[in-house]
């Protein structure tokens, strides 16, 4: 087994240990197809955002009213990939969003982004989130889906230290480590996913060259 594969395996195991869904894809396009399949099969693309069916205050309920359509958000994708996803969305009648994320604070069904780095030791993805659009897509989505090119996996966070230092020095900068879905144990220490951020994290490992 090559060391690249060993890293991918370790990353997979660690990400799964924090309830991320990890699958392998042979191309970014395959990831797009999987996302759309997810939208259909698991009825992830719901009309209502999570929690909107529950008894809420006036303000919270009004914000829910803002989300009346199935939405996939993917700011920051390269042009050709973005075009392909736009077409898939159009075919299925899903709104495709790449900007104006503040209009969707109530929630989008799926946010799709490409990880800049990944850390095998903890199953972590690293996103340069300078773009507010991208940042919000990873925060307000019900499901965060991400593509991780295997070549971008490093063994430990410490291996990234020089790179991080360089990134932070080109300020302003917002870099995010994401490991698993949003979680809380604040009520009776019961682990609950999706308190503020995504309820599910889906990772597509792409064995790039």
């Amino acid at each position: 087994m090559s060391s690249k594969n060993a890293l991918a395996d370790e990353f997979t195991a660690k990400a799964q240990a924090v309830s991320a869904f990890v699958s392998r894809v042979s191309s970014p396009e395959e990831a797009l197809e999987k996302i759309m399949a997810l939208c259909l099969e698991r009825s992830a693309c719901e009309l209502l955002a999570t929690g909107c069916e529950l008894p809420l205050s006036g303000d919270a309920a009004r914000l829910c009213d803002g989300k009346q359509q199935k939405v996939v958000a993917a700011p920051g994708l390269k042009k050709d990939l973005s075009k392909k996803l736009a077409k898939l969305c159009a075919d299925l009648g899903v709104r495709y969003v790449t900007e104006g994320m503040r209009e969707y604070v109530a929630g989008v069904d799926i946010g799709f982004t490409v990880a800049d780095r990944a850390i095998a030791e903890t199953g972590t993805m690293v996103f340069n989130s300078d773009s507010e659009e991208l940042r919000l897509a990873t925060m307000v989505s019900e499901i965060h889906a991400a593509l991780v090119p295997v070549s971008r996996i490093v063994p430990t966070a410490m291996d990234m230290a020089p790179e991080l230092r360089k990134t932070f020095s080109g300020a302003p900068n917002y870099t995010a480590f994401v490991t698993g879905a949003s979680r809380t144990a604040d009520i009776e220490r019961v682990l609950t996913l999706g308190v503020h951020g995504p309820l599910e994290l889906h990772i597509y490992l792409w064995e790039d060259k």
């Binding site: 503040r102 966070a157 900068n173 870099t175 480590f177 994401v178």
Partner: peptide, 21 residues
Amino acid sequence: ATGQAITSYVSWITGPAQCAA
């Protein structure tokens, strides 16, 4: 703290980020 290898999120913030508001 909680027996986690790392928290779900670690945000590294340097200077004022882009903010449409």
